[in-house]
Amino acid sequence: MSNSHLFLPSGFPRAPLQNGIGRFVCQLQRITIKFCKSNGSSRGVREFIEKDLLDFAHNYPGIVVYVKPRRHHSPCLSAEYLNGERQYVNCHNHSRDEVIKWVNLLRTESGNQIIRLRKMWHTDCPSIQGPWSPFVNRDPHLNVVEFPNESLSRPVYLPKTATEQLKEIFEKQRQTNVSSLDEKQAE
């Protein structure tokens, strides 16, 4: 993120009203082409109007096209969208190809405000498992435990101490002694 993005709002990619999931609705409502009939800076725009504008209007009947000549001004494109936003492109000294490019861009835009995208993708189902919470995979036994609990406090992995080993050996010895005594009594 650079300094120029400081005042740019941020957000996630989102289509207006789920556009394109059922059918596509062109978001461009009307486009106004302003140009001068004599000025050289409008030459590309004039060429566009002569050669491409009729095809454009014919191909996209949903878009209202206004053509507005005005004397001695540089040409521009002004696009209005269904959400009320408005885009303005200055076409000073643009060639015909450049004008076609800009008109196509304005036609395909959603009209949403330009934002810094925090992620380049969008999903309605971010996780199949469901989001994590402190209560998932929790032992239900802990719900009925009284705290402080000594067995929960002790470390889990403990090596056997020498005392415990000695006690085990002693216990074993006593068992064998008892069993040998029993045998003797049986004899």
Partner: peptide
């Protein structure tokens, strides 16, 4: 404070 406690951290040594 006692009624909030739901978990116990294990000690380092027995």
């Amino acid at each position: 404070i006692k009624q909030n406690i739901t978990n116990q951290i294990r000690q380092l040594r027995p």
